[in-house]
């Protein structure tokens, strides 16, 4: 079963707010000068910010804020966030792989930015709301 795609807009302001809230002040997430110096096309989103957005999608599908039992991803491609009002967009979709006897649901998740996958092996196990 496929779950409805959810779209998240990401701007530079979001990255600055996430840096402050998470304590991850790596300059590749706010300084083009630093990002390009280490060979990136420009400022990129924190991998953990992308994962947090996927977490929002997963809890929304599950229908409960405390649904997540297991959640893992591999970061495969950076999410470049241009310094524009629009920023960029991350699309998150998932398929239900399995519903176990003890009431847990296993999801395989896909996250893309500009049509390219940014995560692999993204999986979540959730307890769906009744």
């Amino acid at each position: 079963m496929e779950l409805p795609t959810q779209t998240f807009r990401v701007t530079r302001a979001d990255l600055v707010r996430y840096a402050g809230a998470s304590g991850d002040f790596n300059p590749i997430h706010w300084s083009d000068r630093t990002a390009t110096k280490v060979g990136l096309p420009g400022v990129i989103a924190h991998g953990m910010f992308t994962m947090a957005l996927v977490g929002r999608a997963v809890t929304a599908w599950a229908g409960a804020p405390d649904a997540v039992v297991d959640f893992g991803v591999r970061f495969t491609r950076p999410v470049v966030v241009p310094d524009t009002d629009e920023g960029t967009e991350i699309e998150v979709s998932a398929v239900v792989k399995e519903v176990t006897e003890d009431g847990l649901t296993r999801l395989d998740v896909t996250a893309t930015c500009l049509g390219e996958k940014v995560l692999s092996q993204a999986r979540a196990t959730v307890r769906m709301a009744r």
Binding site: G47, M51, V68, V69, D70, G72, V73, R74, F75, Q121
Partner: peptide
Amino acid sequence: HGDQRFAYTRP
């Protein structure tokens, strides 16, 4: 960052 995973006992 390569991989990240959380396995919860409770929130």
